[in-house]
């Protein structure tokens, strides 16, 4: 009985995720973002010709940055419309009139976006690998770690955008998401700034802020790959656990807020 219920819950979760995946897949904005990213990839080639640094390093650095930016944009933009769109067309009431909880619904929506991010990430990663092979740049196993970090960063951003979208508008959700994306990628700079501050009270406030924002720098293994330094396994595991628990907390918080609101 319990097994049937679990199977049924998984089926429902997958049904919501599938519809979300197909909806985003048919959205022109996804393809526009993809085309811009491909242009940027091609642009990488010209940049590498102009740069004084080694071509290998420029292509790797720029290529991964393009994947990061593209996946972050998709995560923020579509994450911030996942819930509001359901309310606009009133389909949320239709789904909640079925035996389905808010948390399952939100998790299904999130999962659908993760499928898209994963698909996009894999395609761009393959493109990057093709480019590296074309320029005969050696592909290190470290590339996998660096890409995994980018994937997880976009998953967290998607969770954040979904969370913000449960209590604010789409545009504000994107703004909040961008805010955390920017500061989350500059945690070390903020810490440096705090160290140079003379005011203790402002320093305390900023230190508190650093603890609140997700530390995206910890997910960045780009430096490791550029300088061929292997990452510490314990650090990798801790960072991945941190990312998963952050995503889980965001979805739970989003579910709690949605339930309270309704």
């Amino acid at each position: 009985m319990k097994e049937t219920m679990n199977k049924q819950s998984l089926l429902k979760l997958h049904a919501v995720a599938r519809v979300t995946f197909l909806e985003i897949l048919k959205d022109k904005i996804l393809y526009s973002a993809g085309i811009v990213s491909l242009f940027l990839f091609v642009f990488t080639f010209f940049i590498s010709k102009l740069s004084v640094v080694s071509v290998d390093r420029v292509i790797l650095d720029f290529g991964m940055s393009v994947i990061n930016l593209s996946m972050s944009f998709i995560a923020l933009f579509f994450g911030a419309t996942l819930i509001s769109r359901e309310f606009e067309r009133k389909t949320v009431y239709l789904i909640l009139s079925r035996p389905m909880s808010w948390s399952s619904f939100l998790f299904g929506k999130f999962l659908g976006l993760i499928y898209i991010l994963f698909l996009e990430g894999v395609l761009f990663s393959l493109f990057l690998i093709l480019m590296l092979s074309f320029f005969k740049i050696p592909i290190s196993s470290m590339l996998g770690f660096a890409l995994m970090g980018i994937f997880f960063q976009s998953f967290i951003l998607a969770g954040m955008a979904l969370f913000f979208n449960t209590f604010t508008t789409t545009s504000l959700s994107v703004v909040f998401g961008l805010f955390f994306y920017f500061f989350g990628n500059n945690v070390s700079q903020i810490r440096l700034f705090i160290a140079k501050l003379e005011s203790d009270s402002l320093g305390s406030i900023l230190s508190g802020f650093v603890y609140i924002i997700p530390n995206f720098e910890s997910l960045s293994w780009k430096t490791n790959i550029l300088y061929q330094i292997g990452p510490e396994w314990s650090r990798v595991m801790i960072t991945l656990l941190y990312s998963l628990s952050l995503i889980f907390t965001l979805i739970l918080a989003a579910s709690f807020i949605s339930k309270r609101k309704n």
Binding site: L11, K12, V19, R89, K90, T91, L94, R98, P99
Partner: peptide
């Protein structure tokens, strides 16, 4: 109703059946 426009009639019914 403004259902999921990207789905076909049967695709939409399939989803609602599973959710039911």
């Amino acid at each position: 109703p403004d259902f999921y426009k990207h789905l076909t009639g049967s695709g939409f019914l399939y989803q609602m059946g599973i959710l039911s």
